[in-house]
Design a protein around this nucleic acid. Structure first.
Length: 848
RNA sequence: GCGGGCGUGAUGGAAUGGUAGACAUAUCGGACUUAAAAUCCGAAGGGCUUUGUCCCGUGUGGGUUCGAGUCCCACCGCCCGUACCA
């Protein structure tokens, strides 16, 4: 073959790898194991460039680890339950199961040409009964272990469609289909007791050294451990006191009202017999359940008429307001408002004419409050109404003093609370894992027997296809599926019709990959060998929920005997990669509304079809609605998988977004063609020359740099080195043996990124066996060090000259040499230097 | 609103607190060619009455340091998450 033909060589080498079975994960005592996992995809039906980037990164690691002598586990599966399948069935008929498995087949077909080193024998989908049946077994074990319980929780209720909506189905507080204003309504739901592990999940973050600091910080803030004061306001009418929790008890003398959640028992009691309260509370319940909607919505309040006494001054009465921004889920569902030191309270007080009384002010300069004064607890402030002392102290000190005083006087106690709430897992939907419990009139809620698992999803209803166009949960209205017998007493009973949150499915799949087809959730021997995941790779959007839930599940699975103790933190190292973005091309229709165009419809700023100029909007995440998508399948057919792989790794650091450009893809292809040509044109018989050692020296530097780049996720930097080394090789006048060696090493260093091309070059230059299993090259340390180095010389931090010195010249000599330079003398202008800083091997700075 | 992150040439980006702009794209010039494509070679942050190892320059404004793209503070813009999208 004379030219680089990706289509030909890629199919050939994929078959060769398959035949050799080199990607099938095997346990053996003679090698260390390495488990690399990318977050598994949702089977939408099409792979996109984000997938290509994610799986290519994992593949680079997997192939590198294979070449460095590891037993590698690199599996793939499908996060296959979830709403889109039901939405598709709703929109265009069909069955979620058929849609999902069809999509999986399509995506697998699109993914395989990428040449990923995946052990496909371990593939599964979370909607396989084999998988979700084991998930039901896990659920029952967790129920038995006391990690699951039922309580009420609020959901988005669409009063027209009479159905529960997901947050994304609530748009501006209205149902996406009905357009009706959504209400917050309570339902009895199943919960995982993740809050029991709040402290442990927080403390263990410290041990996750190979996780991005930002992810650990986000989880820490999410768990939200706080130390505060809990105490009760006594009511002037002598009835039940109101318990409040505050993290800023030092502001108690600035209290101007007590606020309670619309879901607080007092509010509920008032609602029952006061129409005005009922009307207000109903108003509060309008709109979605998200924290964002609640926090950014208009602050509403209602004076209940109830009055309470200030704990430090019984003659001081405070009004009790129902306020829509107070969450029943956090603290006690009641607060005291201190408008001077909380912006939300400030806005509320301003709106309703409540007093604003500062308890402290800046150390320098006085008050005059146009907005709340909210310094951090670590800052020192001057207390003017600090009941614990009129002095300058930090918020922290004042808070501690307040708690101490409250405890000493017996009216309050220091309390630690967490923001983290228990994980509600019930979903009123069809396409999910059925919750394996039974409701019996006599026995109550009874777990299904393990031998009856899996509780299978019904495909039909009464011999007819399920009608997904009707809003609501088909399981709930199914004519027969709900009917069952009570596992305890054997009488007729009803199945639970809620299914599990899809986060449950993705919270233990990493463990299942170690024994994907076992008839228990895991197999001890396999889990012991393969866990933990050595490198986990996925999007930053999963920084909190998915990763926290997975950490919880690893603990729960340990408690229930499904994972070894060492797997308590399932992911040893985490890498969060950026998105693939693309420019957006738009024109306007007759009504000036934007019309989007696919990249392939546009050429040099104009529509190919009509020649109309397009507006170019800067790069954004690829999305179907904006049409700024590039289909990996068409890129692969145009340039080959190696080009796609090379490009997504090359231009940007992996943790940042990468912009896909047609020019960049073309350039990547040209470069790979060039590497192939360079290798093909080497005359291996050409005699050795004086340039051999220089080429080999560069080769060893390249081995060193690329190895370092691959190990530290510096793929783009590694590729830059590979470009540079390719240029060196192209220009080198070295002999055939040296060039052959350099090209073989180049192919090896590129192999994790462009495995097919590398195999081809390897074969061309008569390398032994498959490059995929050839031992990774190691650099010769002696070849990495240059004898002389160039030192820049700064005067007052500005670069003025440079000198060339032997690499181990001592400091005093370097200083002497630097001062002797004419440019330095000129800059000094005759004056003696005040100080000379010599950083060996780095820089010289002369301070004038 | 709250929590987290990011911001460097025309463009993507490089740079353990130590020569800002590696490597690449687009552009321009040259070689080869009847011509084009492909390929190869080269130029290139901005500025200038001073072409100088000159001045300015890493979102904006301050600070720490012999030295700041990098560390600290404030602000602006964008992105992610915000518990039922996955």
């Amino acid at each position: 073959m004379s030219r680089y033909s990706a289509a030909e060589i890629e199919a050939k080498w994929q078959q060769a790898w398959d035949k050799a079975g080199i990607f099938t994960a095997k346990r053996s005592a003679d090698k260390p194991k390495y488990y690399v996992l990318e977050m598994f995809p949702y089977p939408s039906g099409r792979i996109h460039m984000g997938h290509v980037r994610n799986y290519t990164m994992g593949d680079v690691i997997a192939r590198y680890k294979l070449a460095t002598g590891h037993n590698v586990l690199h599996p793939m599966g499908w996060d296959a339950f979830g709403m889109p399948a039901e939405n598709a069935a709703m929109a265009s008929g069909g069955h979620p199961k058929d849609w999902t498995y069809g999509n999986i087949a399509d995506m697998r077909g699109q993914m395989k040409p990428l040449g990923l080193s995946i052990d496909w024998s371990r593939e599964f989908a979370t909607c396989d009964p084999e998988y979700y049946g084991q998930q039901q077994a896990l659920f029952l074990d967790m129920l038995e272990a006391g990690l699951v319980y039922r309580k009420n929780a609020v959901v988005n209720w669409d009063p027209v469609d009479m159905t529960v909506l997901a947050n994304e189905q609530v748009i501006d507080g209205k149902g996406w289909r009905s357009g009706a204003v959504v209400e917050r309504r309570e339902l009895t739901q199943w919960f995982f007791k993740i809050s029991d592990m709040a402290e442990e999940l927080l403390d263990a973050l410290d041990g996750l050294e190979n996780w991005p600091a930002k992810v650990r910080l986000m989880q820490e803030n999410w768990i939200g451990k706080s130390r505060g004061l809990q105490f009760a306001f006594t009511r002037t009418d002598g009835t039940d006191p109101i318990e409040v929790y505050t993290t800023r008890p030092d502001t108690l003398m600035g209290a101007s009202f007590v606020g309670i959640s619309p879901d607080h028992p007092i509010a509920k009691a008032l609602e029952a017999d006061n129409p005005q309260v009922a009307e207000f509370v109903a108003e509060c319940r309008k709109g979605g359940t998200t924290e964002e909607a609640i926090e950014t919505g208009e602050k509403l309040g209602f004076d209940t008429g109830i009055r309470v006494k200030h704990p430090l001054d019984p003659s001081w009465e405070l009004p009790v307001w129902i306020a829509n921004f107070i969450l029943m889920d956090y603290g006690t569902g009641a607060i005291f408002g201190c408008p001077a030191h909380d912006q939300r309270d400030f806005d509320f007080a301003t709106k309703y004419g409540l007093p604003i009384k500062p308890t402290f002010e800046p150390v320098e300069g006085g008050a005059g409050l146009k907005e709340a004064f909210t310094p951090t607890k670590a800052e020192k402030v001057r207390y003017i109404a600090g009941f614990a002392g009129k002095e300058v102290q930090t918020g922290e000190e004042a808070v501690n003093a307040a708690v101490d005083k409250a405890e000493a006087e017996g009216w309050g106690r220091g309390v630690t609370k967490f923001r983290l709430r228990d994980w509600g897992l019930s979903r009123q939907r069809y396409w999910g894992c059925p919750i394996p419990v039974v409701h019996c009139a006599d026995c109550g809620v009874v777990p299904e027997k393990k031998e009856n698992l899996p509780v299978l999803l019904p495909y039909d209803e009464g011999g007819k296809p399920i009608d997904f166009s009707i809003p609501g949960n088909p399981l709930d209205r199914h004519p027969t599926w709900r009917d069952c017998t009570c596992p305890t007493c054997g009488k007729p009973a009803r199945r639970e019709t809620d299914t599990m949150d899809t986060f449950v499915d993705s919270s233990w799949y990493y463990a299942r990959f170690t024994a994907p087809h076992a008839d228990t959730p895991t197999v001890a021997e396999e889990a012991e060998y393969w866990m933990n995941v050595d490198q986990y790779i996925g999007g930053i959007e999963h920084a909190i929920l998915h990763l926290l839930y997975s950490r919880f599940f690893a603990r729960a699975m340990q408690i229930t005997g499904h994972l070894p103790k060492k797997a308590i933190e399932p992911f040893d190292a985490l890498f969060t990669q950026g998105m693939v973005t693309h420019e957006i091309y738009q024109t306007r229709d007759a009504n000036d509304r934007p019309v989007y165009h696919l990249p392939e419809e546009v050429e040099s700023g104009k529509l190919k079809a009509t020649g109309e100029a397009v507006e170019i909007i800067p790069s954004a995440k690829m999305s179907k609605s904006k049409k700024n998508v590039v289909d990996p399948v068409s890129i692969i057919s145009q340039f080959g998988a190696d080009t796609a792989r090379w490009f997504v790794l090359s231009d940007s650091p992996p943790e940042r977004d990468v912009e896909w450009t047609a020019a960049g893809a073309e350039a990547a292809f040209k470069h790979l063609s060039r590497v192939y040509r360079l290798a093909a044109e080497i005359d291996v018989e050409a005699p050795a020359t004086d340039d051999d050692s220089a080429l080999l020296r560069e080769m060893h530097k390249c081995i060193h740099d690329v190895t370092g780049g691959v190990e530290s996720f510096g793929f783009n930097a590694a590729i830059a080195k590979l470009y540079a080394f390719t240029n060196t090789l192209a220009k080198s006048k070295a002999g055939g043996a040296a060039k052959r060696q350099a090209a073989l090493v180049l192919a090896q260093l590129m192999a994790p990124m462009t495995p097919h091309l590398s195999e081809e070059i390897w074969t061309l230059l008569k390398g032994e066996g498959l490059i995929a299993t050839a031992a990774w090259p190691t650099p010769d340390a002696a070849m990495l060090i240059d004898d002389t180095i160039t030192l820049p010389i700064q005067v007052n931090g500005k670069r003025r000259a440079e000198i060339s010195v032997p690499k181990d010249m001592d400091k005093a000599e370097v200083e002497k040499a630097a001062l002797a330079v004419e440019a330095v003398q000129k800059a000094l202008d005759g004056a003696a230097p005040k100080k000379v800083i010599v950083v060996p091997g780095r820089i010289v700075n002369v301070v004038a």
